[in-house]
């Protein structure tokens, strides 16, 4: 295996021409997305550049505190983003999303980094940050889809929920159908990517490892770990957020409290 090929400034200039080509096509076909493409391209460079600088700094420090702080920040932004993607909200929805993300991400991330990969020191940023980032990015989608579906079910299919309650369903019995509906919806993206992995696409992380010089089977092993951890994080995160929302929106005696539920 040859040495790692480093990218030079000129390489970035060449790749910029590629995105310019996309822009030219947009202008020629009057797609009207030239401006958005330019903004997106600039954002990509700035955001990735900044996180690159931060990561360089954190890698160089090799201390626990900055890693923990960065992880907490990532959880904060992931929870906020998850709520932004739902069509309905209730007063404590941010708190519930943050708690669900934090618990699922720290539990799954903890097992993967400390037991499966077994990193030393325990906070080794080279492993901890990218792994937790992947968990968060995916469980964000699961939490957002699951929560959105759950709230929609309660609002749109309220008559069905109340029908069950009217015939004596307990809170758990009345909330089981919306919970199942929400979990199924939340799990679809990860189920799809697990089913397509290796056949339709080479997953991004595996591609990255191969580019960085890992033997393919090592990259595959990592990818399997990552897929499984994402599936677990999505399932745990979506379940927690939906259970929390259920408790907020229906009291222990099964009275629905949807006054606070607002469509956006």
């Amino acid at each position: 295996m040859g040495p790692l090929i480093h990218l030079q400034p000129l390489d970035l200039v060449v790749s910029t021409m590629l995105v310019v080509a996309a822009g030219v096509i947009s202008v020629l076909l009057r797609l009207g997305i030239g401006r958005r493409l330019a903004v997106a391209a600039v954002r990509t460079v700035i955001q990735l550049g900044l996180i690159g600088l931060v990561l360089e700094k954190i890698f160089a420090l090799r201390q626990a505190a900055p890693v923990v702080l960065l992880v907490l920040l990532m959880i904060f932004f992931a929870g906020r983003e998850a709520v932004k993607r739902t069509g309905r909200r209730y007063p404590s929805v941010y708190l519930d999303a943050w708690l669900a993300m934090a618990v699922s991400c720290l539990a799954v991330g903890g097992v993967v980094t400390q037991v499966v990969v077994g990193v030393h020191p325990w906070f080794d940023p080279q492993y901890v940050i990218p792994l937790l980032g992947m968990i968060l990015g995916n469980s964000l989608t699961g939490v957002a889809l699951g929560l959105d579906r759950f709230l929609e079910h309660l609002a749109v299919r309220r008559a069905e929920v109340e029908l069950r309650l009217a015939f004596g369903a307990t809170r758990a019995e009345a909330l089981t159908p919306p919970l199942r509906d929400a979990m199924r919806t939340g799990m679809i993206p990860i189920l799809n990517s697990m089913a397509a992995a290796g056949i339709v696409s080479l997953p991004g992380m595996m591609t990255g490892q191969i580019l960085a010089g890992s033997p393919p089977l090592q990259a595959v092993a990592y990818q399997v770990v990552v897929m499984f951890m994402i599936a677990a994080a999505v399932a745990i995160g979506a379940m927690l957020v939906v259970l929390a929302a259920g408790r907020r929106l229906m009291d222990a005696d099964g009275v629905l409290r949807l006054e606070g539920l607002q469509a956006r």
Binding site: A159, E160, E162, L163, L165, A166, F167, G168, G254
Partner: peptide, 17 residues
């Protein structure tokens, strides 16, 4: 109250199914 509803049951307006 769940026990109550099993005994004092509402057949709601618009016949939900």
């Amino acid at each position: 109250l769940a026990r109550w509803r099993a005994r004092v049951t509402l057949a709601a307006q618009d016949a939900p199914v």
